[in-house]
Each structure stands twice: as C-alpha cells, then as structure tokens.
Design a protein around this nucleic acid. Structure first.
Lengths: 335, 335
DNA sequence: CTGTTAGCGCGTTCAT
DNA sequence: ATGAACGCGCTAACAG
C-alpha cells in the first residue's frame, strides 16, 4: 500500500481551474459561489480526496478550536464517565467536541495533563480538581479561557463550579432514619479526605446533632486507604459492643460493600447509600440519588456561557440530590 | 475583566532578546540551548504567560496531531466507556490524547461525526461501527490514517478490528448448562439485529445442536425494540406451556431483567448472562465475562502499530471470554 | 550554541 | 462572483 500525500485547497483549485479562495468559499462560507463553479470544485475535491484542514483553518482564525477539554480523575469510575456523557451531549448541541484526558487520580499529573490540553488551544476547560491547588490556571483564565470545576471546588482559583448537594443530601437521609427512631447510625467514608466526603460527613453530623447525638466518632469509619474494603468497615461497625442500627455510606463503594454484608442479617440493619446504582431498585436499596448527566450538562453550559459572554460573573451551582426510599432505609430499629 | 491577547514565540523572543527559533528550541527540542539563555527565555515566557500553540506546531510539521479519535455509540453505556478507558490509557503511554465523539447510536450521524474528527487531523480513528457501511472511510485509510473497528467488524472497509469471542463464549456457557442436564434453554437478545447479538445467538444454537436440540425458535426472545423490557421477555418465557429450565442473556440488559424476575422463583431457573456487572458476585450470577479495558487497549495498540508501520497488514483480533460460575449457572434442571 | 529564511494550509483584506 | 497577496504561530533547513 502506498501512502499518497494529502490534497490541499490549492490542488483542488488547480484541478477545478479556479483560485484557492474559491475553493475555500465552497468549503467554508458557502456564499458567493455560482452553482456551476461549486459543482466543479466539489467534483475535484472528491477526486483528490480533499478534506479541509481544521488545523490551518483554526490557526488563521486566531488559534481557536472547536474543542473543550474535560480532565477526569479516573476513567474507569462510572460517575466520572457519566458526567463526561453529559458534557459531550451539551457540547455537541453547539458544534463542539470534547477531548478527554485522565489524571489517573494523581495530583502530580494534573498540571501536566492540563498544560498539554491548553497547548491544543481548547476553548474551555472542565476539570475535576485532584491537586490541592489550581492557581496555575489563573493566567489562562485571565486570557479568557473559561474554567469550570466539577464535583469539587477549585482551590486558589476563581472559577465556575458545579457540585452536588452533598451536605444537605446526606442530612436528609440521616434525618429520615432518626425520624423512625434510629439514633445509633454508622457512616462509611473512603477516601474520607476529599471534599465530597467531608461535606457528606458534615451532613451526617448535622442531622444527628439535631436529635441530640453529638458523640459520633465511634460510628464513623473514615479511611483514606483503598485497600480497606467497605465490607471490612461494615463488619467492624457490626462488631461493636453497641452496634449501629442503621448505616449510611458516603459513596457507591460503601454501598457495594454494605449490600454484601447486610443482606442476610437478623435483625436487619437499615441502610442508605450515596450514589444510585444499577440494580439498587431490584435489591431494595435506598439511596441519595442525583443526575450525573445533568452535572456534566451544567458544567458544559457554564463553559459555553462564559464563551458567549467573557465578562459574566463566575457561578457556583449545586445539583440537587434526592432521597429514594426502596426499603432498606425504612427499616426501623429493633424494638 | 479584560482579556489580553496571547503572547507568541516572537513576543517572548523580543523580551528575552533572542530569536524566535531559540524560543522554539527551548519549548520543543530542548537541545542546543545554553542553560543561561534557556533560563532567560523561560522567565520571559512566564511573564508573558506564553503557551506554545500546538495548532501552529502541528501545521508546520505536516498537519499531524497527537490525538486519536474514538467514535462511540452511546456514552452512557458502561461497556463503551470502559473500552474508552482502555484506549485512553494505552494512548497516554505513547503521549497521545483521545478525542471522544458520540454518534448516539444513530447510523445517520456516524459519517458526519467521523468527518468532523478527520478534519481535526487525528492520527488514527477507532470506532464502534453503527452504520452498515463504512466504505466512506476508504479514502482516508488510503491516505494513511489507521482505522480500527471495535466490538463489530467494519462493513465494506479494510480495517483492523477487535471483537469479542461472542460465539464461542456463549456456546461454552450453554454447554455448561447442557452438561448438567438442561435441554430447554431460553435466550434473550435485544437489540437482536446487531452483529454481536447475532454471533451470540449462533453460539447458543451451536451448543444446543451438539446435544440434538435443533428446534429453538420458541425459546428465543429476539427483539429490536428498546421498549420491550428484558423483564417482560423473561416472564413470557416462563409463561410458556413448556417453560425453559435455564435462561441465557445476550447482554447485560438481559441480565438486569433476569435478575429481577428469577430471584424468588421455585423451582429455581438457571441463568447465565453475557457481560459481567457490579454486584454479580454478591448476587451469585454466573456470566460470560471478558476484559473491556483490554478491548480498548488492543484497539489502541493496533492503531499505534499501523502508525509505526503503515504497510503492516490489517489484523483481526478476538478478545477471549470466560465463563465465571457463581451459582446461578450451576442450578440443575428440576428432577 | 544561535539566527535567517521560507512556508505548512488556510482565511482575511483588499481588489477586480 | 472571483482572485492576489499577505499573515496566523510555529518549525525545517539551512547557515554561521
């Protein structure tokens, strides 16, 4: 197989017997070209397998592309990817494409990955902050590139952000448990150090404080070690001298572990997870749910808004959560 | 907020008192520049918030970028995005980034989406074919752009492909059922029209034919309508005068439905699904599993291989599947 | 180790 | 309705 070289505007123009500008008009403006010339140009283009070069086009137009970057932590996490789906959809409505890059949840690689994307002249940057300082983006922001942080607020950077109603969502869940009499409620969190988990923990404490429970430390299983399984944490709670009658998980990792342990317990232990998951309905698991697609769409909309009006104020959006009762959260404490 | 204009190589060169080529060397070659000059250039660049423009760089270098396109059907499908994760990882190892575009499983939009990506001068194209003709890509392939189809073979196009061991995998699953005495085995498929499902159906028939069962039509639930729920299909099988004693599902959609229906059945009905899923182990569901990450990695490797050696032959790879027994597939037929 | 010249493929700005 | 000249930001190919 021989690899031929690519045809350019000029090649097409030569074959069609017109100037390159006319070909340019056919492929871009679509105006001021006679139908006959147009046909001839398109015919030549097809014969030469011509494809307009967006690199050159964008360069001439001032170095702006039609792509928006999304910097994601871990590509295998369904949550992140569903957010990506939302971003992609919203962008597609506006003729923009998404480039995706992963930091593999490594704070050190964040700046490197982001830099590489900015060098591609993306029009906007949506990111899930992993590092604990995003001040390196300030210059780019001042140059007019919209920056939107998702799931967690950016640190040391003025930027739009879209986060979940973490604290209120968990508080609502815990309140539903205290309302039916629970007072001994466990909380699972791993990794406990990140923003979302800290917020959810705060919500858990809020709701318990409302009913006079302030000593919660022994019911909290806060870890920052992926090797500590959620199953293990649940079992350690149940092994307490005074075990909880209900458990709340800060993420779907915790739910997966809890489901495995709590299924055949007698007396049953109430459970509410954060993040909905496939089959949760079939298993009767109550959860604090939200719309991850909407999270992505909202982030994309904020980016597009800044693109349309560079002088607009930065915005913080909270995506609502809602408690979905499916049984496991409605189990009362043993009499 | 005022948006300043972006600094260029020349701006940095002027401030540093060197030629633009020297600045270029600092940011690209990283060779043949004295440490002192280098420092001065980097200092000026920082002050001006200079960021190299990859568009211009790539244009000058012959219009080749560092991006590979992945055209995906439906971003919200966990299978697809896990494949994407594999692609991204493999590409990242080679300094390439992935751009992602979705056809929303609409055959009509495929060519449009692909065209837009090719105009961005991606170095290679990985796609999940949705349309039933990919001949429109032949010109691009002849120009040297590697094309790799994933999950399904491309139609009317010479291209590398990576598919699953669909037929063999399902045959193995069905054989495990016939081995313990099952003869009446149902098969769920929706959408039944696509390549993977047709292959899996063929595997199902293969294995049953081996034990002399050739009349399988009434146990096959083949639909091409998303509104027909898997639950409904399962129930319709169980409602037969002579209901199956085991059921095999062609995808995880079928598994989700089957799990809901089969949980509390007496006598129990054996079940094996295609595609592994979260909590399948906790639920004791046997499945035909494979490594979707590996599917993506392999696709990326094929693309990279063609990039390294444009004259290499096209390759068809089959990713192995394996039967994971977790209980549901080991239930014998009622005596 | 550093600079000069030319041009990647296209669109803009004029002109005709 | 069409064309000529120039330049977007950068790097290849040469000098020196």
């Amino acid at each position: 197989m021989t690899t031929q070289s690519r045809a350019t505007l000029a090649d097409v123009a030569r074959l069609a017997g017109v100037s390159s500008k006319t070909v340019s008009r056919v492929f871009a403006d679509a105006g001021n070209v006679s139908a006959e010339t147009r046909e001839r140009v398109l015919g030549s283009a097809k014969r030469l397998r011509f494809r307009p070069n967006n690199l050159a086009r964008n360069l001439r137009r001032g170095g702006v592309t039609n792509t928006v970057a999304f910097v994601i932590g871990d590509l295998t996490n369904p949550f992140y990817f569903t957010v990506a789906a939302g971003i992609e959809r919203e962008l597609a409505l506006h003729g923009l494409t998404m480039v995706l890059a992963s930091t593999d949840d490594s704070p050190d690689s964040e700046e490197r990955v982001v830099d590489a994307l900015l060098a591609q002249r993306v029009r906007a940057l949506v990111l899930i902050p992993i590092a604990d300082d995003q001040s390196y983006l300030d210059g780019e922001r001042q140059l007019g590139t919209p920056v939107v942080s998702v799931d967690r607020p950016a640190r040391n950077l003025i930027a739009d952000s879209v986060v979940l109603q973490n604290r209120v969502g968990v508080a609502e869940a815990v309140r539903s448990l205290t309302a039916i009499g629970h007072r001994k409620i466990g909380f699972l969190s791993n990794p406990a150090g990140i923003y979302t988990q800290r917020e959810r923990l705060a919500g858990y404490r809020d709701a318990l404080r409302e009913v006079g429970v302030t000593e919660t430390a022994h019911w909290e299983r806060l870890d920052d070690d992926p090797s500590v399984s959620a199953e293990y944490s649940v079992r350690s709670l149940l092994a307490l001298a005074d075990p909880p009658t209900a458990i709340v998980a800060g993420n779907n990792r915790g739910s997966a572990g809890a489901v495995r342990v709590l299924r055949d317990l007698d007396p049953p232990v109430a459970f509410i997870g954060f993040d909905d998951f496939e089959l949760a309905d079939a298993l009767g698991i109550s959860v604090v749910a939200y719309d991850p697609i909407e999270l992505g769409r909202t982030a994309a909309r904020l980016a597009l808004g800044h693109l349309a009006d560079p002088d607009s104020f930065t915005t913080q959006v909270e995506i609502p959560t809602r408690l979905i009762q499916r049984g496991s959260g409605e189990i009362p404490p043993p009499a």
